[in-house]
Lab assay of single mutants.
Amino acid sequence: TEDARKEAKKIIDNGGSPDEAAKFIKKYGLSEDQARELVKRAL
């Protein structure tokens, strides 16, 4: 979702790792793979 993508970008912009961002956005109901893909797109 757009919200999850924004959250991921915010985490990374604040110095978080892509892994942290992926873990965080899994709470939106995404699978591990979906979360990682979304983080990649957010970069």
Rank of each mutant, 00 (worst) to 15 (best):
A8Q: 01
V39F: 09
A35K: 00
K26S: 11
D3H: 13
P18K: 04
I11Y: 08
P18C: 15
F24T: 14
K6E: 09
P18D: 08
R36T: 07
V39I: 11
V39Y: 01
R5G: 08
K40P: 01
G15V: 02
K6M: 11
D33Y: 07
E37I: 05
K10S: 09
D33T: 10
R41D: 11
K9T: 05
A4K: 03
K40W: 12
Q34R: 01
A22V: 15
A21V: 13
I12P: 01
T1N: 13
R41I: 13
K27L: 07
T1Y: 15
K40Q: 13
N14I: 07
A22S: 06
A21Q: 02
K23A: 15
L43K: 03
E32F: 08
L38Y: 01
A8F: 09
V39D: 02
A22T: 10
P18A: 13
Q34P: 00
D13W: 09
D19Y: 10
T1M: 15
A42N: 02
E32Y: 09
A4T: 03
A35Y: 10
A8E: 02
E37Y: 00
A35H: 01
D3W: 13
E2Q: 09
R41P: 02
G29D: 04
D3R: 14
E37S: 06
K40F: 13
I12L: 15
Y28C: 07
P18S: 06
K40T: 11
T1V: 14
E20V: 05
D13G: 07
D13R: 11
A4Y: 09
S17A: 05
A22M: 14
K26N: 07
K40Y: 12
E37N: 06
R41W: 12
K26W: 03
A21M: 14
Q34K: 05
E7F: 04
Y28H: 05
G15Q: 01
D19C: 13
I25H: 03
G15Y: 04
L30G: 02
E37P: 00
R36W: 14
L43T: 05
K10C: 14
E20Y: 09
D33Q: 10
V39P: 00
A8S: 02
Q34L: 09
T1F: 15
Q34A: 09
I25L: 15
D33W: 07
E20S: 04
E32A: 07
L43C: 12
P18Q: 07
E20K: 02
I25A: 08
E2A: 10
R5P: 02
R41Y: 08
E2M: 09
K26V: 13
A4R: 03
Q34I: 07
D3V: 14
F24W: 11
G16F: 09
A35T: 05
G15W: 03
E37K: 05
A21L: 15
G15K: 03
S17R: 02
A21D: 07
D13I: 08
L30S: 01
D19W: 11
R36E: 08
K9N: 03
D13F: 10
K10N: 08
D19E: 14
I11N: 03
K23P: 00
D33P: 05
T1P: 11
L38D: 01
K26I: 14
A42E: 07
K26Y: 07
R36D: 05
A35V: 11
G16S: 05
P18G: 07
G16V: 05
G15N: 03
S31F: 00
I11W: 05
F24G: 13
K27E: 11
V39E: 01
K40C: 14
L30M: 05
E7H: 07
E7K: 06
D13Y: 07
G15S: 02
A4N: 01
K23M: 10
L30A: 00
